[in-house]
Design a protein around this nucleic acid. Structure first.
Length: 423
RNA sequence: GGAAGCGUGGCAGAGCGGCCGAAUGCACUCGCCUUGAAAGCGAGAGUCCCGCAAGGGUCCGGGGGUUCGAAUCCCUCCGCUUCCGCCA
């Protein structure tokens, strides 16, 4: 959420910046709401101040002037009540408007609306030169006897997966490898967190109120809970409504959780295989930092995500997303795209985003520095990585002419096997 | 699910319907003292909102009510603790 004053400041250039991502900001009504709200606050405060003075005067008043004072106090009370009501009403409107406004893209973010407009930053590794026609991960998984999509559909419907035998073991090994890398090499603290969270948490990171249709919602009686689409939600909200001493920053958190996405509006997209699931498992990296350092922290963070792919020897590239392709809360995002021989192209596997203070304002994650300066924290997150999509890349890039798949060396201590072979 | 109790500032812990933003202790910041530190002494310091500022307002778990006036009374919700039941 933005500070309305900042949005209204011409120096911010908010209208143009938001237009780059396809959002049209109504500065006029914003201005009107803000000034109206502030005027109401002031009116209420003045009346309340007077009411306090009168109430104090009542105590020592002569009997004959007491009645007049009490009546005056009653009148003031009405004024306070009216001003307060107006304040609340305008504040609700203002908040609703602000909650709807996405983050401002940084100037370095390229123009454009789709992934075609992303800017190539760098490429790592060589797509394996296969002297045979590569299979995609669905066929591979089927032959290897580790992936059973038909039965997943029977159990829950499309976009769910069943892993079997070494497939299930591979999933477990990947999660452990990712977590060890994050905690032992990159300094993240591992958490185990709820995967069902309340509306406040979802609003804090920006999934709500705008994107409720993307979430799975559950509840018993009046109670309302949402399945997390990513561990970003619980990890970032750990410090919601808290004030952090700047000298304790940056905080680096990781968690391995299931993630749930309704994938509304993605009908027909990636219907085959493990790419787009309603439920998948992911290791997430979250950083809570001094707000002035987020841009540098993003480079650190994307490096941590890249290290995972590099450790597995998977060819990938890094792109900077176009303004119109940014997530709601992000001001800049790098996508990591891994090479998929089965599709003969790079496909998104992870994305690392800098949210500036956008989420911290929503979630009220405050900071206080040694000299007493107060502000909001900066937040960032990256996948590190999703297990399913990593398995896709691993199977497809590691496939051999005989139909077997070679497990990357770094992973062998975790799997206990170095090769998957057809059943 | 049943019964009882409790929710005050970073922590601990007072608080008669007006003198309470709130005693006191610890912790904290800045001085003094000391070779240095500790102890001692003095001073200061909460949050959020409106305001250029001066200043004003808010906040004693959340919300509502009674009253000229509520941390103090009432209602309600939430959370925590203890006991019983059930249970992974």
């Amino acid at each position: 959420m933005h500070d309305p004053r900042v949005l209204l400041d011409p120096a911010t250039d908010a209208v143009r910046k938001l237009a780059r991502r396809g959002y049209s900001l109504d500065l006029g009504s914003l201005e009107k709401l803000l000034s109206g709200r502030n005027a109401a606050i002031q009116r209420g405060d003045e009346a309340r101040a007077e009411a306090k003075r009168v109430a104090t005067a009542v105590k020592g008043a002569d009997p004959d002037e007491r009645a007049a004072l009490v009546e005056r106090a009653r009148d003031l009370k009405a004024v306070v009540g009216a001003a307060e009501q107006e304040h609340k009403a305008l504040d609700a409107e203002l908040t609703a408007l602000l909650l709807d406004v996405p983050n401002l893209p940084l100037d370095e973010v390229p123009d454009g609306a789709s992934d075609d407009d992303a800017e190539l930053v760098r490429t790592w590794g060589e797509p394996p030169a296969l002297d045979f026609t590569p299979l995609d991960h669905v066929d591979l998984g089927d032959r290897l006897g580790i992936l059973d999509l038909p039965r997943a559909t029977k159990l829950a419907g499309p976009r769910f997966a069943v892993l079997r035998g070494r497939g299930a073991a591979l999933e477990r090994a990947l999660a452990r490898y990712f977590l060890d890398l994050a905690t032992e090499r990159h300094g993240y603290t591992e958490y185990s967190v709820p995967t069902l969270v309340n509306r406040t948490s979802m609003t804090g990171t920006g999934q709500l109120p705008k994107f409720e249709q993307d979430l799975f919602k559950t509840g018993v009686d009046e109670r309302e809970l949402f399945l997390i689409p990513t561990a970003e939600v619980p990890l970032t909200n750990l410090h919601a409504q808290e004030t952090l001493a700047t000298e304790t920053l940056p905080l680096a958190y990781t968690a391995h959780t299931p993630c749930f996405r309704s994938e509304a509006g993605s009908y027909g997209k990636d219907t085959r295989g493990l790419i787009r699931m309603h439920e998948f498992s992911k290791v997430e990296l979250v950083r809570v930092v001094d707000s002035t350092t987020t841009r540098d922290e993003l480079e650190v963070l994307v490096g941590h995500a890249e290290a995972v792919l590099q450790g597995l020897g998977l060819a990938y590239r890094v792109v900077k997303l176009a303004a119109g392709d940014l997530g709601f809360s992000a001001q800049i995002t790098y996508d990591l795209e891994v090479w998929l021989p089965g599709q003969q192209k790079y496909r998104e596997i992870a994305s690392a985003s800098d949210f500036g203070t956008f989420q911290a304002r929503r979630a009220a994650i405050r900071t206080r520095s040694k000299d007493g300066t107060r502000g909001f924290a900066g937040t960032l997150n990256s996948s590190g990585l999703p297990i399913g999509r990593t398995m896709v890349a691993l199977l497809e890039q590691g496939q051999q002419a005989d139909g077997s798949v070679v497990i990357p060396e770094a992973l062998v201590p975790y799997t206990g096997f170095d090769r998957l072979t057809p059943a």
